[in-house]
């Protein structure tokens, strides 16, 4: 398949997952705020978790309020990672590969994009944020379901799944990190009922609470992290994402499992091994935040290797109309 097309499918899928996860970040913060009855510094912390603090400062000055942060993360077209910006990228990528994807996928992308764009004008997101972000998640789930049930399980589907799961692994690690940022100033909360409520909110924002309960009786920080980071079966858990992304990578290249023939496979395999043999006690002892930070760096280098291995041949599409049609 064309490198450009593979690149577009991969990024279409990543951006879609990103849009969904921005909604999840915001949701977990909204939940936590409700219980903590103070929002001192928490909104700025949220922006720094998404990695966009610098551009936020540029755009909105120093003051990080609920309004400025929600608008920045949701509708700001100057923020490349806002929900509206990422959906615009989803749509632009999809437009350039319309002959590859199913028309059902295209229709869903359009519908989703217009929903968010129109919400920016109507102010509905600020009024009933929970409903709005819930709907964003639902539309993204709908897209994933449509993609899964209308695409051939060929190279294109594997590029899409790989993109989605790499993005998801990164974002789940950041969702866990939100908790770290928010709790850091108040170490006295650890182990209190408030703490447990917060961990439950965290699970909820990763749509993980129900599946977690089936596996663990109590909500403890160790088992929550264990579940979101190292579970092999939960679809938003980081290890699960890495396992499945690796499976797709090997389906694309045909390299047998457990071996590597390019840099992307080598790095992905190493990440797989690291997570498989990690122990939660060690991670927490050494520092969860540092562990997640390191994981994000490693995952980025997997992404770079995928680009070099599969997409580097292609160049950016020109932006001109070009040539006359009669």
């Amino acid at each position: 398949m064309l490198s450009r097309v593979a690149n577009s499918i991969y990024w279409m899928s990543r951006y879609m997952e990103r849009a969904e996860n921005v909604a999840r970040f915001i949701e977990v913060n909204l939940h936590l705020m409700l219980d903590m009855q103070t929002d001192e510094g928490q909104w700025a912390a949220l922006v720094s978790t998404t990695g966009d603090l610098e551009i936020f400062m540029e755009r909105c000055g120093k003051e990080a309020t609920r309004e400025t942060v929600l608008d920045f993360l949701t509708f700001d077209r100057e923020n490349p990672n806002s929900i509206l910006s990422t959906l615009t990228m989803v749509r632009e990528n999809a437009r350039s590969i319309r002959e590859i994807i199913s028309s059902e996928m295209w229709e869903q992308i359009n519908k989703f994009y217009y929903f968010v764009r129109d919400s920016a004008l109507s102010g509905v997101a600020a009024e009933t944020p929970q409903d709005f972000y819930q709907r964003v998640k639902t539309e993204s789930h709908l897209y994933a379901g449509i993609a899964d049930s209308t695409m051939n399980r060929g190279e294109d589907w594997h590029f899409a799944r790989m993109g989605r799961l790499i993005e998801r692994a990164d974002k789940t690690s950041r969702i866990i990190d939100v908790k770290y940022f928010i709790l850091l100033p108040k170490p006295e909360y650890v182990g209190t009922p408030i703490d447990n409520i917060q961990w439950a909110a965290l699970l909820k924002s990763a749509s993980a609470l129900d599946m977690y309960r089936r596996k663990y009786e109590q909500i403890t920080p160790e088992s929550v992290v264990q579940f979101l980071l190292l579970d092999r079966h939960f679809p938003r858990a980081i290890l699960y994402c890495v396992l499945m992304a690796e499976a797709s990578l090997h389906s694309i290249t045909g390299t047998p499992a457990g071996m590597f023939r390019n840099e992307a496979e080598r790095r992905m395999g190493r990440l797989h091994a690291e997570l498989t043999y990690a122990r939660i006690d060690d991670i927490i002892k050494k520092g969860l935040h540092e562990y997640l930070d390191n994981f994000q760096t490693e995952l980025n280098s997997v992404g770079d290797s995928i680009r070099d291995t599969f997409f580097a041949l292609s160049t950016a599409a020109p932006n001109t109309a070009g040539g006359m049609e009669e």
Binding site: R4, V5, S96, R98, E99, A317, A321, G322, G323
Partner: peptide, 24 residues
Amino acid sequence: PGIYNSAYFEHSYLAQQMGIELVE
């Protein structure tokens, strides 16, 4: 020429109908 061309829909449609690659 790409997605900004006025006839892009047609290019994409014909490529799909013929089962050939659409390239830039």
